[in-house]
Design a protein around this nucleic acid. Structure first.
Lengths: 256, 256
DNA sequence: CGTCTTTTTGAACGTTCTCAAGGGATGTGG
DNA sequence: CCACATCCCTTGAGAACGTTCAAAAAGACG
């Protein structure tokens, strides 16, 4: 919502070593071997922080930095010229921000902090060196890109085939699942502040209808999505209601 | 539509060398340097052909092979348990098929030939060797994954924010553009057989409404989409109608 | 306490869907 | 060559889902 700031977050000189990376505590992530961690440390430039509502990347900008999410949740959004806006996806700890910009130069979308976030900073112009120097790094980067793609597929299925209630249930399941995997939401309740306007922009629904659908799902006891938390009483029945194949096993994500 | 066949296409022993790769003639593609081409040739296993309607990958299968599209057009689709189906995207010459399966083992979607296609065959179990051996190859793979992701973003915007007419116009522009870049559709007319049912599954519309929207766009002289061709009289006005930012410059795609 | 943002509700309208049926093209077997 | 099946396209009409407009209530913040 606020102004831009590719450089907005402060970069404390504190070269907090990767040995103290908060992602080490994250069970859902596959830890890089020690030697790779050193390589990554060599490219790392520091940390950046953004508060809720700040833009990490502006659509159309040419960022100098790339980031890995260390903590918090963000949103990728795309704006049409007439003001309509579509939320593409949410980003969680371990996700890599700016890959597309690293390759093209220009951001095709914006990235906004949904909670306060801390990011690990890399220089864009050293990106090629990074992936070229370590095959494993390139492999992990490809892994992340391919899986982000799979998440978008699922989102496309939602928008194309599911009605408002199914869509919202599917989104809630996705978010709680994703949060659970990264250590947040241990008990099926995700504490996060998402406005109904943001939900509407994610699901391609009007604000009014989003509100009514929210209430319907609460009445059905499938999803209780309040201003600052998402709670799913019974994950399995929510998943069934949304028509999500539960057989999609999840492999541990790498991070960089 | 037909039965599966991961091995369905014949693999003629003809080790047609990559020097004769049909993609060399493709202006829209960035050619790999000679040494990289040799590397790729070493991993290549031959060619496979599929006719219109055949499934190259089944959803949920564990393919032994990966492919690069040499000629023709394909469709990635995802099936829900209740039979609803969503077309995720179309694939053109130069696209790489099966990346997600290469990493996860299991296909999250199906791939079906829309025209007759010829594919370049690689062994899945040598995938890691491939990308690890050549940084440039890994980089290109990441490039393709990131750009497929960008295409899906655009599709999400369509499904979420555009109405039926805008959606269909956007899809037509995308297809004609993409075909034009790969040498097909030189004059803004793409000769390809797509049923209205397939269009409906791509746009998330009912078959009936797809038909009516098709007629509306024809009456408006924006898009003339018949059984076996897509024609856009004025690309710029179609683009404007659909609300596509035309400032998105296109870089030449690498291929593998 | 006033202002701003977000949520909630009502009501009319419109887009899109479903159901139903008919027509055209193509292919197959008798 | 005709009968029949199949697949795809087309049209009509009523119903459902979702949108828009409008306004009020509820929180958040200084």
């Amino acid at each position: 919502m606020q102004q831009n700031s590719d450089n907005g977050g402060a970069y404390p000189e504190s070269q907090l070593r990767c040995e103290a990376c908060p992602l080490i505590a994250c069970d859902g992530l596959r830890q890089p071997p020690a030697d790779l961690r050193h390589w990554i440390a060599a490219f790392r430039q520091g940390e950046a922080r953004f508060v809720r509502g700040e833009q990490v990347f502006d659509q159309g900008s040419r960022p100098k930095h790339l980031y890995t999410v260390l903590s918090g949740v963000l949103m990728r959004t795309r704006l049409l010229e007439d003001g309509r806006r579509q939320v593409i996806n949410f980003m969680f700890p371990g996700d890599f921000l700016g890959l597309q910009a690293a390759l093209d130069g220009e951001m095709s979308h914006a990235v906004e902090a949904v909670t306060s976030v801390t990011l690990c900073v890399f220089a864009r112009d050293r990106f090629f060196d990074m992936v070229a120097s370590q095959p494993r790094l390139a492999f992990d980067m490809t892994w992340l890109a391919a899986h982000e793609e799979a998440a978008l597929e699922e989102h496309i299925v939602s928008l194309g085939q599911r009605n408002a209630r199914e869509r919202m249930a599917a989104l809630a399941v996705f978010l709680v699942q994703r949060a659970h995997d990264t250590g947040l939401a241990p008990d099926g309740v995700l504490t996060i502040t998402v406005t109904q306007g943001q939900i509407a922009d994610m699901l391609g629904l009007s604000l009014v209808h989003t509100n009514r659908t929210l209430q319907a799902l609460r009445r059905l006891q499938l999803v209780d999505w309040t201003v600052n938390s998402i709670s799913i009483p019974d994950l399995e029945s929510a998943r069934q209601f949304a028509g999500i194949d539960s057989n999609s096993f999840r492999l541990p994500r790498p991070y960089i």
